[in-house]
Computed example of a mutant assay.
Amino acid sequence: MPLHSLQRLSPTAVLGLWHLTETPAELWPLLPQASTYQTLLPATADARRQAQWLSGRVLIHRLLSEAELAFPAEIQVRNDATGRPWLVGAGLGDTVSLSHSGQWVAAVLARGGRAGVDVEEIRDKAQRLASKFLAPGEWAAAQAAHSPGAADASAHYTLLWSAKETLYKLAAQRGIIFKTQLLLGEFEWREAGEIPATLVLSGAETRHCICYSQPSPGYVLTYCHEPIP
């Protein structure tokens, strides 16, 4: 389907969502410079992964053309050595963050500053792995928020994982330990809201705000954009 939504986060950044229903064959004609992207498509990707990969780049190009942020006309989306997307042909400091899960693809496109976005299909995996990525206080707070076996517990833990993924992308560094360097503060669990967060790098702490919502039942979305001061 076409671009699902475009949300202005600031004068220099937009958040876009794509509801993925297309096959790879349907996505290729929507992608500028398709011949170039054919050489970049991961050779081992199955049809589902191909569709997610392609729709992410279709979404970014749609944002480039519709977001009115004055990007150069000829831009390609590539991945660096860590797997993060970057914009070939864009200005110094221009940034993009991309995520896909199930039927949703999300991207934040910004002219300067830092950005992170993550979309996750709600599963019980995050709850099972909570002790590995949540600090003791975060885990205790999550456990206190739900009675044993509560139906919305999986959504809560998936949200916590997603928020840390967004904070990790905002940091743009490898080797970060989710449990000790990506910390989430207290918040009221709702369908949409904000989560205070702390990033611990090189002994210094910085404060951030992670926004969250549910693009559709069964999914959570988190994102953050911080313009240049």
Rank of each mutant, 00 (worst) to 15 (best):
L17S: 05
P85S: 14
Q50Y: 01
P29A: 08
R114T: 07
H100T: 03
A163Y: 00
W104M: 03
R174L: 08
A144R: 15
A25D: 12
G102F: 01
L64T: 03
G83P: 13
A73P: 12
Q103N: 11
K164T: 11
R111T: 10
A43H: 15
S35Y: 10
Q7K: 13
Y223D: 03
L129D: 14
A90W: 12
L3A: 03
A204T: 13
S131V: 13
R8N: 13
G185Q: 00
N79C: 12
A153I: 06
A140P: 10
D124V: 09
I122A: 08
P72S: 12
V105H: 00
T36E: 11
A171G: 05
V58L: 02
A155N: 07
S101Q: 11
V117P: 00
L182S: 01
I122L: 06
V14H: 05
G89W: 10
A43N: 07
A135S: 12
L184Y: 01
L63Q: 03
A25N: 06
T198K: 09
L92G: 13
S162F: 01
F71T: 05
L134M: 12
Q181E: 10
L27H: 00
C224N: 14
A106H: 02
L40M: 11
I122T: 05
T39R: 14
L221Y: 01
A25S: 12
Q33N: 11
L201E: 06
A130H: 09
G56M: 06
W28I: 07
W139D: 14
E165P: 01
S202I: 07
T198F: 02
D80N: 13
Q127L: 15
P136F: 04
E191Q: 09
A192S: 08
A171P: 08
F178K: 00
I60K: 02
I75Y: 13
V58K: 01
H156S: 09
Q33S: 12
I75H: 05
I210H: 00
T21Y: 04
A155M: 06
L9F: 07
D94K: 05
L183H: 00
L63R: 03
Q143V: 11
G83F: 10
L3W: 04
R57E: 11
L160N: 00
I60T: 06
K169C: 01
A163W: 00
P32R: 02
W139V: 13
D124F: 09
R111A: 13
Y219P: 00
R57K: 05
L92N: 12
T158V: 08
S10I: 15
E26R: 12
A141D: 10
G112Y: 03
T95V: 14
G16A: 05
L41R: 07
L20I: 08
Y157D: 07
S10P: 12
L129Q: 15
L167H: 00
A70W: 05
K164Q: 00
Q127M: 08
S131G: 14
G193F: 04
E186P: 03
Q173D: 05
R49F: 07
S216H: 11
Q76S: 14
W28L: 04
V88R: 15
A130V: 09
V96P: 03
T44D: 15
S162P: 06
L183R: 00
F178S: 01
P227A: 09
V200F: 04
G89Y: 09
L221W: 01
G89A: 07
E66N: 09
A25L: 15
F187G: 03
A45F: 13
S202D: 13
A153K: 06
L134Y: 02
G112P: 02
L182F: 03
Y219L: 04
L17N: 02
